[in-house]
Computed example of a mutant assay.
Amino acid sequence: MPDETDETALLIADVLEAAGALRRLGERTAGAEGLTQARWQVLSAVSEHPLTAPQAARRLGVSRQNVQRVANDLVSLRLATYEANPDHRGSPLLTLTPSGREALARVTDRAAEQHRTLFAAVPDEEIRTTRASLRRLLTELDREEGVEGTR
């Protein structure tokens, strides 16, 4: 019978494996709609209200440079546009165009259908319990990193 340390190590391995599989699924899902997962994530991050590249990067937990590159791609594809930022002249706000909103809706709908199929065999209560456990783990990770109250 494995001890607690073994169970913890196995849980971490399972979470990382699941994260990798979900990233691959996300890339296929986005690709089916002519996007990359990174473009999908940035579109989603700025879908509620315009954000600067640094704000979107913080929200996504990635580098500002990566978000800036993706944002520039989205603008060149006419899925997003830059607006003047009244709070910071040198850091424009990224906002979705109507085409960007349509692309985001298509990929989000496709993902929702895949998730329904993927989780059909898992009872809702099991999903809620697993999510609650992961949220507690994320809170502890935030505390470890010195980032209070982000979850």
Rank of each mutant, 00 (worst) to 15 (best):
M1K: 10
P2D: 12
P2T: 15
D3K: 12
E4T: 12
D6Q: 12
T8K: 15
A9D: 12
A9P: 04
L11V: 02
V15G: 13
V15D: 13
L16R: 12
L16D: 08
E17C: 06
E17T: 12
A18V: 02
A19N: 08
G20R: 07
G20I: 06
A21F: 01
G26H: 06
E27K: 05
G31Q: 10
G31R: 09
G31H: 09
A32P: 12
A32I: 14
A32K: 14
E33D: 14
L35W: 04
T36D: 05
T36L: 12
A38E: 09
W40E: 04
W40A: 03
W40L: 09
Q41R: 10
L43M: 06
S44E: 00
S44T: 00
V46Y: 01
H49Y: 07
A53H: 09
A53V: 04
A53E: 08
Q55A: 13
Q55S: 11
A56C: 06
A56F: 07
R59N: 01
R59C: 01
N66L: 06
N66E: 09
V70C: 13
A71G: 07
N72C: 10
D73Y: 14
L77F: 13
R78N: 13
R78L: 04
L79R: 03
L79A: 02
L79W: 04
T81M: 10
T81F: 13
E83Y: 06
E83S: 03
A84F: 08
P86F: 03
D87F: 13
D87A: 15
R89P: 00
R89L: 00
S91H: 15
P92T: 02
L93V: 02
T95R: 15
T95P: 03
L96V: 03
L96W: 15
L96F: 14
T97I: 15
T97P: 01
P98F: 14
P98S: 14
S99H: 15
R101N: 12
E102Y: 04
A105R: 01
R106Q: 13
R110L: 14
A111G: 11
A112F: 05
E113M: 07
T117P: 04
A120C: 09
A120M: 09
A121W: 02
E125Q: 10
R128C: 03
R128H: 03
S133V: 06
R135T: 14
R136N: 07
R136I: 11
R136Q: 11
L137K: 11
T139W: 01
E140Q: 07
E145I: 03
G146L: 04
G146E: 05
V147R: 11
G149M: 08
R151L: 05
